[in-house]
Nucleic acid binder design. Structure first.
Lengths: 131, 131
DNA sequence: TTAAATGATATCAAAAAAGTATCATTATTT
DNA sequence: AAATAATGATACTTTTTTGATATCATTTAA
């Protein structure tokens, strides 16, 4: 079972770091602190910006700052940027849908469990993850 | 998020099929019914036998039958054969443990969520998954 | 004008998951 | 005894996903 991806892990650490630094930082200041590869973290940050978690400032002295308040960000907010949930009525094995899709009783049960876990992520605020 | 692997999925369908067939069947009778590749299902069945879920009978007219009663088998029983949980105190990214393992606050939180999901699997009896 | 930041995108590499192939062993049937 | 049909064991291959790079364009402040 894989709850989160490495991208989510890096994103969480990076967001926490920015928060501690007063709410703004550039990738060059962060990546070594959280042991993330610079170009990978850059990609992650672009997605965080596209998703409305951060605002990016280009140019010298640029960087990223929070758009969504740090205290309001949940683990689900970050996770869903990097990992898709099975849609309602969908099969958890997107690419390997078998021919009994219609009558398949399992997919709904598995998805329900996935959704319960997702609800748990929704209740987890990242600000509390370092307590 | 990936709750179960395809191996678990096939195993569930196969066990249900055996149950419907009266409690005993050979791989050759099952694989086409559940749309699983024969050699893959064979490998899966060997693991189910090694794990004490099934008993195997070799030779002509051989096959597999339940060792553990069908009604007592949970989703967790099957899942844990094919997918390992993060151990207590361990890192969910086994292969990419960073240098701040000791002080890492995240790994415990993520594992706790994983464990909650696992507890849910433990409460799910496979006999009920076709209701 | 230069330096230092992000935007965008294409590509690559490593790991995990899914699936195959093959030969050995065992038991039943003929 | 021989043929058949099942599992045991194991090594290998392929496909998919995840993690990571590389590169060039654009923007902005000093």
């Amino acid at each position: 079972m894989r709850i989160i991806k490495k991208e989510t892990d890096y994103a969480l650490r990076a967001l926490y770091f920015i928060h501690e630094k007063g709410g703004k930082a550039a990738v060059s200041q962060i990546y070594s602190q959280i042991k993330a590869p610079r170009p990978f973290l850059r990609k992650i940050f672009r997605m965080l910006a596209l998703s409305g978690i951060l605002i990016s400032k280009k140019g010298k002295n640029g960087g990223f700052e929070f758009k969504k308040p740090f205290n309001s960000i949940t683990l689900a907010d970050i996770n869903e940027i990097f990992d898709e949930m099975t849609p309602l009525g969908g099969c958890p094995f997107k690419n390997r849908i078998c021919s009994n899709f219609r009558s398949c009783a399992l997919k709904g049960k598995i998805r329900a469990i996935e959704q319960e876990t997702y609800q748990r992520l929704k209740r987890t605020y990242i600000k509390d993850m370092w307590d």
